[in-house]
Each structure stands twice: as C-alpha cells, then as structure tokens.
C-alpha cells in the first residue's frame, strides 16, 4: 500500500508535527507513514483524509502484491 500523505501535507503547508497534532499521533508515526513503512488503522486513515481535505481513495492506493 502506498500513500500521498506528504504531497497533500505540503500542499496545505503543514509540517509533520502539525499534522501529527491534528490527528493525535506522534510525529514519528507521520514519518513512518510517509515512508510507507506503516499502514494506518482505518480510524487514522479517515482522520488523515479529513484533515488533508481529500478522500481516503485519493490518499491511499493499494496494489496487489501477488
């Protein structure tokens, strides 16, 4: 699974720390998300999409790894 969190975050002019505070997680969680080293819970995915003003489908894309 890949995401475009960094792209949308930069568009809104938010820092990682500000985004982390808005969705109530640690800054390092945002770092891992942006590096695609962590897949968030559904709750966090929806929170991120809401804060970044995009849909979850736009934010995350899934490629079958078979």
């Amino acid at each position: 699974m890949t995401n475009r969190i960094k792209e949308f975050r930069v568009k809104l002019g938010l820092t990682q720390e500000e985004l982390a505070k808005k969705v109530n997680v640690r800054r390092e969680t945002i770092v891992f998300l942006e590096k695609n080293k962590y897949n968030p819970s559904l709750r966090l995915a929806f929170d991120l999409a809401q804060i970044l003003n995009v849909s979850v489908e736009d934010l995350f894309s899934f490629e079958d790894e078979k």
């Binding site: 982390a20 109530n24 997680v25 640690r26 390092e28 969680t29 891992f32 962590y38 968030p40």
Partner: peptide, 14 residues
C-alpha cells in the same frame, strides 16, 4: 519530550 511537546506518549504505531 513527548509530554513537553504536547504529543501523545503512546499512539497506534508505538
């Protein structure tokens, strides 16, 4: 440090 910055000490990743 987390407490001082105002971020949660634990979140879903940790």
């Amino acid at each position: 440090k987390s407490w001082k910055v105002g971020e949660p000490q634990e979140d879903e990743l940790s």
